[in-house]
C-alpha cells in the first residue's frame, strides 16, 4: 500500500516535507494504525502518538486523506491511495504527525470542566433521574482527540480566543448536568464576541467527530440559552 506522510524533525529539517512509503501489509493489518506500526518497524524515526488502538483514548488523531480522524478506527479498505497523512491542521507541529496541543487543552481547562456544586454532598449519591442523565448522552463521551477543533476555521484563526467545538461541547455537558450549580458563571463566560460566538455552524466538527458526537448542536443550545437570558 502506498503512503505519503508529512515529515518534520526540527533538529534536521529546515522545512517539512512529504515522504513516500510503499509497504506490504499483512492480511491482519486492518486499521490505518496497524499500517503505521508496520511502517515504523521499517523506519523507526516516524513519530506519531498512539495508545488504546480501539478509539477511546484519543491519541492518534491525524489528518487522513484531507480529513481528521483516528488512525486506529480508520479501516484501510476505506482509504484511497496514496494515503496522505498530515498532522492535525492549524496546530504547531512538534515532529512528524505529533502536534503541540497546549492551546487545545488550555481552552478545555478554561470552561471549568467539572461539576460545580458547593453544597456539602449527601451521605449517599446525589439523585438524578434517568431523564436528567439521558441529556448527558452525546456529550460526556468526548475523548479530547481534537479532531473537531482542529477542523474548525474559527479555531485556526483564534485558537487563543475561541473555545472551539470540543471545549464548547464539554461546556454544554456541564451546563446540561442537573447536578451543576454554576449556570450563571458558565453563560457569563460565553458572553464575549469570541469564546462562543465565533462558531458559524459550518459543522466541520460534526463531520469529523470519530465518536459521532454533535458539537454544533451543543453550541446551538448554549447560544440560545445566552440569547434567552439576555432578553
Amino acid at each position: 500500500m502506498r503512503f505519503s506522510i508529512y515529515r518534520y524533525d526540527p533538529e534536521k529539517d529546515a522545512a517539512p516535507r512529504m515522504q513516500d512509503y510503499d509497504i506490504e501489509l499483512d492480511p491482519h493489518d486492518r486499521m490505518l494504525l496497524d499500517a503505521l506500526i508496520r511502517l515504523k518497524t521499517v523506519d523507526d524515526s516516524l513519530a506519531f502518538r498512539r495508545s488504546c488502538r480501539e478509539g477511546v483514548c484519543g491519541s492518534d488523531a491525524m489528518n487522513i486523506n484531507g480529513k481528521n480522524g483516528l488512525a486506529c478506527i480508520t479501516n484501510l479498505k476505506t482509504l484511497k491511495e496514496p494515503v496522505v497523512l498530515r498532522p492535525l491542521p492549524g496546530q504547531p507541529v512538534v515532529r512528524d504527525l505529533i502536534v503541540d496541543m497546549t492551546q487545545f487543552f488550555a481552552q478545555y481547562h478554561s470552561i471549568k470542566p467539572y461539576v460545580v456544586d458547593d453544597e456539602p454532598p449527601p451521605e449517599r449519591e446525589r439523585l438524578q433521574s434517568p431523564e436528567e442523565r439521558e441529556v448527558l448522552n452525546g456529550l460526556y463521551e468526548c475523548i479530547l482527540c481534537a479532531c473537531c477543533s482542529t477542523a474548525c476555521p474559527s479555531f485556526w484563526w483564534n485558537p487563543d480566543k475561541f473555545v472551539g467545538p470540543a471545549g464548547l461541547l464539554n461546556m454544554y455537558r456541564f451546563i446540561a448536568d442537573s447536578r451543576d450549580r454554576d449556570l450563571n458563571w458558565r453563560l457569563d463566560n460565553m458572553q464575549d464576541p469570541y469564546r462562543l460566538f465565533r462558531c458559524h455552524s459550518i459543522m466541520n466538527c460534526v463531520d469529523v467527530c470519530p465518536k459521532g458526537l454533535n458539537p454544533t448542536r451543543a453550541i446551538g443550545n448554549i447560544k440560545s440559552m445566552v440569547v434567552k437570558r439576555a432578553v
Partner: peptide
C-alpha cells in the same frame, strides 16, 4: 463510589435516581 458520584461521574441511573 459515592465520592466519585459527588465528583461528577455520569453514572447511569435507576428510576428512583440512584446509581
Amino acid at each position: 463510589v459515592y465520592e466519585l458520584e459527588h465528583f461528577g461521574m455520569p453514572f447511569d441511573r435507576n428510576a428512583d435516581g440512584t446509581i
